[in-house]
Nucleic acid binder design. Sequence first.
DNA 1: ATTTCTCATTAAACTAGTTTAATAAGTGGT
DNA 2: ACCACTTATTAAACTAGTTTAATGAGAAAT
Lengths: 190, 190
Amino acid sequence: MNDLKDTILSFISINNVDIDFGLQFFKEESFKKGTFLLKPNEYIDTFYFISNGCVSYYTIEDGKTQVMELFTEGYFFTDLYAYIEEIPSNAYLEVLEDLKVYAISKEDQQKIFDYSHEFERFGRLSMQRAFVNNFRRINELRSLSNQERYLQLLEKRPDLFQRVPQYLIASYLGLTPVGLSKIRKRLSQV
Amino acid sequence: MNDLKDTILSFISINNVDIDFGLQFFKEESFKKGTFLLKPNEYIDTFYFISNGCVSYYTIEDGKTQVMELFTEGYFFTDLYAYIEEIPSNAYLEVLEDLKVYAISKEDQQKIFDYSHEFERFGRLSMQRAFVNNFRRINELRSLSNQERYLQLLEKRPDLFQRVPQYLIASYLGLTPVGLSKIRKRLSQV
DNA sequence: ATTTCTCATTAAACTAGTTTAATAAGTGGT
DNA sequence: ACCACTTATTAAACTAGTTTAATGAGAAAT
């Protein structure tokens, strides 16, 4: 649980007693590859921190898989939209690689936010982080071509290409496997 | 300033003394159409609430204007990315219609977050709101066609079409004026 | 009234993706 | 060792957008 503790401490200054009070609410859980942490029409009230493994966050629309995010070690994740709005999800959270997480319920999260102003601040700052990540994502979708986004992903998260099938990466980049293949071919010819 | 007060109260429960403590840090300001609240390479440490008017938040890349958001009455706005990260912006905030805002500096915002746990919570919740809006945006960019996004904007923010030139709306939708014209023509022929 | 400027539309050629379908190359289960 | 299944590539036809450039129409300036 030290990876989680260190991550929280990178956001806020908080004394040992208080952070340990908070950490007690995170439960260690493990899931096998292929497990679904969430399926469409289900509610989600759990917030996860990944200690180990990989999770795909995707929807299926008109029969087509749309990967929105691929979470790996060190990420906090949930279906943040359904979680915040307390509405049924329309997404899947599927374990792509055997997974070890620290999980906290929304109820317990509220407890630690109430318990300490510092944790409330952690909530605000991690929400900021989520915003910034999403903002970068949206800007990249707007301003970069598919080819540029492919190259950028290759640079920023090279591990993904080793651990995740290419058609999921294609979907994450917003194109079809065929489209990604074409881009790769085009790049290899130069 | 009641519109701002009501908006804050829609996020949190807070007594009158405390909210008035917070509100004193918001300064009323007015700007004429054509004013720039922010230009590329400038820092921004102000958070605005729009009482009246309209602001375009855009970048220019390779000579092309990219409208990221169009803010109107009741919106909180800033260049949230540059504001959070405390880096020089690469965007413009341009007043499209004479504007009345309530503005608070980052320093003063920090004061009210320190002053009261409830304001810290307001910070967290409004950050959540920003996240959710951005999330919706990203999902729409991913899952809807340009035509569908046009129709949706027409439904959700019909006022924009009255107050903002069409080429800005085209840019907001991520296409060229020519492209938007084609979509409108296609729709009018059915 | 005339000119000038801004904005929206249209046309034509082009482009980066799509879809569908066939093929090839691994990979896993029995 | 074999078969079935999954994944990646390629080809061919198609599509929704792009760019550039010309035209039209309304508003603002002199």
